[in-house]
Design a protein around this nucleic acid. Structure first.
Length: 296
RNA sequence: GCGUCGGUGGCAGAGUGGUCAAUUGCAAUUGGCUGUAAACCAAUCGCCUUCGGGCUACGGGGGUUCGAAUCCCUCCCGGCGCA
């Protein structure tokens, strides 16, 4: 029988981390982060990381594992996460995957087999200059099968497809492998009104705690402003503020808007996964009952 | 008060007699997603519709014209200059 792994997903500000810690306490678990920003060192308030204090002694894995200057990828993530799951299971503990990055969660829990082709920055730079139509034509030439299903207007995807095709000769069909574990997925969400309120409160708190100070320090340590644009919407707009391109008055509404847009995109992603058992609003006792049942 | 520039869809901002329900960007809504995923892409975005079309709209009112967001008059509002 496959070992069970709990997965907690949901939008930003729904209380995933806090829930995970309580679940870990109750079932003897360890937490494995599934968040494309929290993997970066130094991006604490910026990515809404759980603090050492809040962790209450529960081990958290895959947090702070990458330098903010380098690009992390899903491929690396799935590899590391699987290793961690095994490790935790070996310790006879319950692995709890927690995060809001749907792509990471899916890649991990659906056993997606991703082609092993690392990014080729030189090639990307070259391809970036071409138009979507040109890129599409090029892909069609090297791999008509992939061209048939790809979004012909999405340059990012086209570049990656060409990159893979260039290395392997073609783009392997995405295979949904058989997951190695039995994932028990739960999703946290709130009605729009409530979620907006929570996002606002959380954002306020993060700003008050010094999200901008944190980013200024990161910049002083050598992270160029340009890189902030890639590190996420909060960091992008705060960087603009730190450079004087956005006033203090403009920043909050802008961040609020971006966070809300993000929350919606997150839900759009997660709701397609029929394995997720949703809790809206998330009520601790109900979730615990559900987990007791699912894990026994 | 005189002069001058301007008032366009949620916002910014094009258009300056017909092809304009009105370019574009943002926002909003929905959908997608094969190693950047907090990224990236797409559709919709005045009202009604039997999807043919119909109706109301570019500050208010009036006029010119076959036809006006676009020209003229007048009123209201804002910026700037002079008093």
């Amino acid at each position: 029988m496959k070992k069970k792994v709990v997965v907690i997903v949901g939008q930003t500000s729904t209380g995933k981390s806090a829930l995970a810690i309580r679940v870990a306490k109750k079932f003897g678990g360890e937490i494995i982060i599934a968040d494309s920003r929290q993997i970066y060192k130094g991006l604490d308030l910026g990515s809404g990381k759980t603090t050492k204090d809040e962790m209450k002694g529960v081990p958290h894995h895959l947090q702070d594992i990458a330098d903010p200057m380098r690009h992390f990828s899903v491929f690396e993530y799935t590899k590391l996460a699987e290793e961690k799951i095994e490790e935790v299971l070996d310790r006879n503990k319950l692995p709890i995957i927690v995060g809001g990055t749907g792509f990471y969660v899916d890649a991990l829990t659906r056993g997606t087999v991703l082609p092993r082709v690392p990014p080729n920055s030189q090639l990307r730079k070259k391809l970036k200059k071409k138009s979507a139509a040109e890129l599409f034509a090029e892909l069609k030439r090297i791999d008509p099968a992939r061209a048939a299903t790809i979004d012909a207007k999405n340059k990012v995807r086209l570049v990656r497809a060409i990159e893979i095709a260039g290395a392997l000769g073609w783009v392997p069909k995405l295979r949904m492998g058989i997951p190695k574990f039995k994932f028990v997925k739960i999703g946290l969400t709130f009605p729009d009104r409530m979620l907006k309120k929570r996002i606002r409160a959380r954002l306020r708190q993060r700003l008050r705690k010094g999200m901008a100070v944190e980013l200024r320090r990161l910049h002083e340590e050598g992270v160029p402003w340009k890189r902030f644009e890639e590190l996420g919407f909060d960091q992008r707009f705060i960087a603009l503020y730190l450079q004087g391109k956005l006033t203090e008055k403009e920043i909050f509404p802008k961040l609020l808007q971006k966070n809300w847009q993000y929350a919606k995109r997150q839900f759009a992603w997660f709701k397609r996964d029929e394995e997720i058992k949703w809790f809206a609003p998330p009520q601790f006792p109900k979730i615990m009952d559900y987990l007791h049942e699912a894990l026994s």
